[in-house]
Design a protein around this nucleic acid. Structure first.
Lengths: 197, 197
DNA sequence: GCGTTGCGCTACGGTCGCGTATCGAAACGC
DNA sequence: GCGTTTCGATACGCGACCGTAGCGCAACGC
């Protein structure tokens, strides 16, 4: 029975190399995209020989899927104030994630290359947007419980309504939404979803 | 002074070849994307020699920009009934454009490759989404004039609010929106934008 | 027919990138 | 020190692709 940490004879593999390779892969994936990324470039940026990469991942695809799988993005819970404020808070974070830093570029890349490699995009989506959507769903459901939101609508669909302007803007190379625009979107949707009549 | 139709000596260029090349280019661009497209593949699909292509366009980039520029998409005006029905009509067309036929795939490709060639995406956007947004803007402004929509909001932003769920779904490989979802989105936004209070 | 140009075909030089191979040196357990 | 494995460096075979060149032949005006 293998323990997973069984000692193999010979020189152990460098964990630093592992990390450097995965990091360089994510960087280049965000910058160049799937087709534009080359193993040679990864090796160069990671300061590593190409053989060191191929010893760990048999093919370029395996490296990519693994890089996406090992990636981590920051995630913070909403402060838990009013539903409106929480939504604005979370949507601002979503906007920052898509427009600042490398995660937005990466997700845009994955979405783009998702036409070719759907699994890769699904993976990134599962990893990044799924937990944020779950947190958002809790806020929506709190709004429903508190009576501010109609209870006959699918929370997922409300989330899409709120989030899609940001994603759509990011994916179609528009400017980032301003705080006023986010507030306006939230207010409009919430006003449209108020119970009664 | 050149008339533009000046007769050149020798065998004239085949217009059929022109059309076949541009058509094949658009097809392959939609299927393979910018980096995946090869001049050789275009020649093969168009049933044309590679030299015939390079005689017309000096480089691959010129061919692509020209192909996008020459492309035409169907566009139909709304029937002009109620603002709600017109919006639902137009959004259904937008959905069809993004999810059926090759135009959606093409725009998704342009958006994806827009990370690399912003001009190419801007061009496609100017050609396809600009006229539809303009038509939509007229409907919104009719709604404002009729008093069903608050007049203190930017129509462009309302359009984004309405359209982005569709675009976002298309660009993130979700299923196409159902008619009920479109209706619900329109109703929610319109309800949130009603004047008063 | 003649000159000119377009067309299809084949071939070529050049670049890039994947994945493999080899080789000397280094890092481990024993 | 020894065997084993990893590491960096270099080179290689192979294929894909860009853009060019040459060669017959076809299509046009004169």
């Amino acid at each position: 029975m293998s323990t997973g940490t069984e000692r193999r004879p010979g020189r152990p593999r460098s964990p630093a190399a592992d990390e450097a390779i995965l990091d360089a892969t994510v960087d280049l994936l965000a910058e160049q995209g799937f087709l534009g990324l080359s193993v040679e470039a990864v090796a160069a940026r990671a300061g590593v020989a190409k053989t060191t990469i191929y010893r760990r991942w048999p093919t370029k695809d395996d490296l990519l899927t693994d890089a996406v799988a090992c990636m981590k993005g920051p995630h913070s819970e909403p402060p838990g104030e009013s539903v409106r404020d929480d939504l604005i808070f979370m949507l601002s974070r979503v906007r920052d994630a898509w427009f600042k830093g490398r995660f937005g570029r990466l997700m845009a890349r994955l979405a783009a290359d998702g036409l070719e490699r759907p699994e890769l995009y699904r993976q990134g989506r599962e990893r990044f947007v799924a937990p944020r959507r779950a947190a958002m769903r809790r806020v929506i459901e709190r709004g429903i419980a508190e009576g501010g939101i109609r209870r006959d609508v699918d929370p997922e669909w409300i989330i899409s309504l709120l989030v899609s302007p940001i994603i759509s803007a990011a994916l179609t190379h528009q400017d980032a939404l301003s705080r006023r625009q986010i507030e306006f979107g939230v207010d409009t949707v919430l006003a449209g979803l108020r119970p009664g009549r």
